[in-house]
Nucleic acid binder design. Sequence first.
DNA 1: GATAATCCGGTTTTT
DNA 2: CCGGATTATC
Length: 749
Amino acid sequence: MMSDPFALDDEPSDPPPAAVSPSAAWLDGLNPEQRQAVETTEGPVLVLSGAGTGKTRVLTTRLAHIIASGKARPWNILAVTFTNKAAREMRERVGGLVGGAAEQIWLGTFHALGAKLLRRHAGLVGLDSGFTILDTDDQLRLLKQVMEAEGVDGKRWPPQALMHTIQRWKDQGKPPARLKEDEGGDFAEGRAVALYRLYQERLRTLNACDFGDLLLHCLTIFQDPAHQDVLADYQRRFKYILVDEYQDTNVAQYLWLRLLAQSHRNLCCVGDDDQSIYSWRGAEVGNILRFERDFPGAAVIRLESNYRSTPAILAAASGLIGHNADRLGKTLRPGLPHADDGDKLVVRALWDGEEEARWVVEEVEAQQRRGVPLSQMAILVRAGFQTREFEERLITTGVPYKVVGGLRFYERQDSRDALAYFRVVAQPADDLAFERIVNLPKRGLGEASLQAVHLLARSQGLPLTQAARLLVETDELKPKARATLAALLADFERWRGLMAGTGPADLAQTVLDESGYTGLWQKEKSPDAQGRLENLKELVAALEEFDTLPGFLEHVALVMENDSRSDGAYLSIMTLHGAKGLEFDVVFLPGWEEGVFPHQRALEETGARGLEEERRLAYVGLTRARRRVFLSHAGNRRIYNQWQSSLPSRFLDELPAAVVEKSGETGLFGGGQGGWGGGWNGGSRAWRAEEPQAWAAPAPPEGGFAVGDKVFHQKFGTGRILNRDGNKLEIAFDKAGVKKVIDSFVSLA
DNA sequence: GATAATCCGGTTTTT
DNA sequence: CCGGATTATC
């Protein structure tokens, strides 16, 4: 990762290791299924591995097994992950088993491996091996430019929408040539595919790729009959292929794998259909189902012994996910004997979001007092905006916390500006980077001057830097602009000249100082200027670890992660998506309300697909916990500063009653508060009643309301009940209109 | 070419 | 209601 990405390393040729005895030590301690997954090396294998069933262990042991038993040399193995973190972890763990050989494995993310292959064969798709990898921001800007040039009304046809469509096409492995011209529907009067084609052409002239291209271009090469030798070479090279998080692969990735594995068919995919939560990004759970069809005779191995969670948590997760119809079917069972089922899952109803936050933080502190370290606890939310209330509460109580995810270092404005300078230096054809910094800091090269450069570049089909170089030879520009631009170009040249002799960190510092970018923030008096300067320092420091500037840029493009070490003593707050693959002793799952979780947008979708994905997300959340789960929902929530009442999530009803406990026997709104109607929170009685879950109507609360009753609600005032569905009421309020409310929150008026 | 005014949208986001 | 992004205005 840290070396020069353009280096065309090839396999070293040391002698093969001696074959090791078949009953090797690394197989010890695996359960029979795990062992089977490790030892079934030949032919297609699908490992369905539930949460907490030792997936990573199986993957790493399998790699070690193949190497140590002499079946293949490390460089004959291709191992693909989704995140850099997973790749790093895997390499470390394999290294622990087989030592330095782990370094030689072709191991990385789909995108990193795609980039590596593509740099070798860039010429075959009209690129130079030093191509730039654009981030989403640049992609959008580029597409906007294309649409503008084509006279497409960006108001009527938002570029974002087309960007999304193009990304989905790329996820499906479809370049423009493989699309019907009208595939984009009405968009821009049916010109979506044409715009896609133009966008791809622009990328090529800029010598750039977007993320999707890293795989799509590979596919194009692999599928081209004229380059069968290239594919054949890799097919021969990669004798064993391993894929992690298989449920998250998209069609392009699937095709990529299938082509590579076609001849020897030693393809092992590990995944869990119940944890597929990225379909909105193009992931196809269908790839799992397809597997057995495309690779007949595939061994299917199920890992169902869970070594992470208590029986109660497993029962809750299984009960919930059992409501999904579209799944392969897998049941988690405790992998180790347990003395008891463990604590029940706590479900708590709160008045509003603020109170929910207060309760959660109180429980966090209570757990802390019982000896659970903060680092072993996490609050998992559905969406980013939910973190605010918890942060506020944690700040006032002084509990250390960290919001995991959020803005990433290289995505910050200052980082991106600085990176644009580096990109222009490293890759003169990078127009997007050029545009970003040509007038930053302000040097009087405004729209007019830039327009002239653009015009020339367009007419001559040249990159902007090159067009600018021609332009400064003419009298096209005003003398001042001409001189400024000439000076800037001279700077670029000088910096490029330094590339060979100067370390990347020193070079970066020089570029930032001489360009005036550092000065821009030094002059700035705004409170965040200091922070930005520190970011720049950090950026330069990060460069120390790299041998070359292009190497660093590759890292930045492909490794968009926060290197947040999870060691400190703080509570983690993150989205459910961000929590996949992690585990904690105690997990808090707030905001289980209809419209929040499951999210409104998922509910509005037609069919059950969206809802099932939300449910898988809930399953992921539950299965993060080793010992305890605290769920909650608030009756009222302020969204966009408007009070909205919300009903408890249907997912709460889907948790088997036997393992759930409604917290607080007094109930927050139950007895004592004066006629809160004794809703389901009135105590644990109703909830503990038998097992009738899901669609069975919940038992009506004693002293429940009837249609027509006049009731009072704290936030909405008085109203009359229109409809009643169990404890959920539809009420026509005198002032607030018709609202759905849970009965615990109203009283007879 | 830089500020002020206004309009829009406001899940999730491994790369 | 807040924030950003585009537009209007000086």
